[in-house]
């Protein structure tokens, strides 16, 4: 079966609605299908990758550590929109580090997160076969 390019676009905050959690569940299940997978985080979706999340006060599950497993699932292309970060007074330092081991480079540990402009993200979107918006 030919592989397709899947892009998951995450647009919502990690809590308040269930979209972020259930999007991550699709990504993890989808990883078993050996497709070409990318993730994009835009608008409030950038909050999904904030470091040091603590959900104790709202009583919902803190699923943010799961993002760190994405590299082990061969999900290593994670795009975060620059403008969405800036609008919210955030920078890459506010995000948790996400890495993967590059099998083509002696398993060197590399950064999965790429900060891209909206225009660059538009080009990435243009290259996809399947786009899932959550």
């Amino acid at each position: 079966m030919a592989s397709k390019r899947f892009l998951y676009i995450n647009r919502k905050a990690p809590h308040g609605t269930v979209y972020a959690l259930e999007s991550l569940e699709v990504v993890l299940i989808g990883a078993a299908f050996e497709q070409d997978v990318s993730l994009a985080f835009i608008d409030d979706g950038v909050y999904q990758l904030m470091r040091n999340q603590d959900t104790t006060a709202i009583g919902s599950k803190n699923f943010s550590p799961t993002y760190k497993a994405l590299g082990d699932y061969d999900v290593s292309k994670i795009y975060v929109e620059q403008e969405s970060l800036e609008t919210r007074g955030l920078s890459k330092d506010d995000l948790m580090p996400l890495t993967y081991e590059d099998e083509d480079d002696d398993w060197a540990e590399k950064d999965s997160i790429h900060i891209v402009s909206g225009a660059e993200l538009a080009e990435i979107i243009e290259q996809q076969d399947v786009i899932l918006n959550f």
């Binding site: 989808g30 497709q35 899932l132």
Partner: peptide
């Protein structure tokens, strides 16, 4: 959820 991924693979267009 595999059925969703499979639909993405099988279909010419997946509409959300």
């Amino acid at each position: 959820l595999g059925q969703l991924i499979d639909a993405g693979i099988q279909a010419d267009r997946l509409i959300v």
